[in-house]
Design a protein around this nucleic acid. Structure first.
Lengths: 125, 125
DNA sequence: GCATCACATCGACAGGTGTCAACATAGACG
DNA sequence: CGTCTATGTTGACACCTGTCGATGTGATGC
């Protein structure tokens, strides 16, 4: 896959290349109503965390020592290996994780800035 | 509907009456991996915000003056009235909104504590 | 080359989800 | 009571999603 496409959302919207930290999206939800476009992009991130297995995988990566985890470190979540792979792909497509192959193993880490951006969305006014 | 059931999650788990602020769930996702049960409950909230229409409805309520909004204030999100009603119900079931009928109108407001609890989940270590 | 390990992709399937039109319900007002 | 307005509920339908087994791919080591 072309590295420039790794973080592209599923829909074909015109998000050119997106070399920014992936989520300088919106003001707090309490500040003003989201526009349709903002809601579309932001909901995709919440949706990615809206599955129990994905949420566990994400927290496993986020809390893993060194800030990264190989798939073998986190695949014990009660579903098959293809399913784990499927969910990690979804988390990548949502811009929440990045992956890198080093030798035999593939390491995932949290996309920098994402936690802060989503946290700010939920900040009370 | 019995008022005591209004905030009950969709599954039949033994959450007795739940008069707490609805979400003192978990430590930050970066602190330790979520357990299966924690992930189940927390994912339900993220899932509720994982639809663009619901996310807009939620931000419309959260940002509305007085901290509450009648359905008539927020039903202009591009879907039919039954669909708006359906999404508001989902947000209620997830414990994100409460509703109260006053005369002809029904007012929705953000369940207190929910924003803080979800925000804390996304706080970096 | 060949076997093995780690991970991704494919194809198929059951179940879930968003949407709407039609209908139901609950107050307000005569 | 009857009517109007504001919401909720129901039923149906197309589409999306999570899951798995089978298979593919890339790296390591013999």
């Amino acid at each position: 896959m072309d590295p420039a496409d790794r973080l592209a959302p599923a829909d074909g919207m015109a998000l050119p290349v997106l070399d920014e930290p992936a989520a300088p999206c919106c003001p707090p939800l309490t500040e003003r109503p989201l526009t349709a476009g903002e809601a579309e992009r932001t909901a995709a991130m919440f949706k990615a965390l809206g599955d129990p297995v994905r949420l566990r995988l994400f927290s496993l990566v986020a809390s893993h020592e060194g800030g990264e985890a190989c798939v073998c470190d986190i695949s014990d979540v009660g579903v098959s290996q293809p399913t784990v792979s499927h969910h990690l792909k979804k988390l990548k497509e949502a811009g929440l994780l990045t992956s890198e192959r080093r030798g035999t193993w593939v390491y995932y880490r949290v996309e920098p800035g994402v936690l802060a951006a989503m946290g700010q969305l939920l900040t009370a006014r």
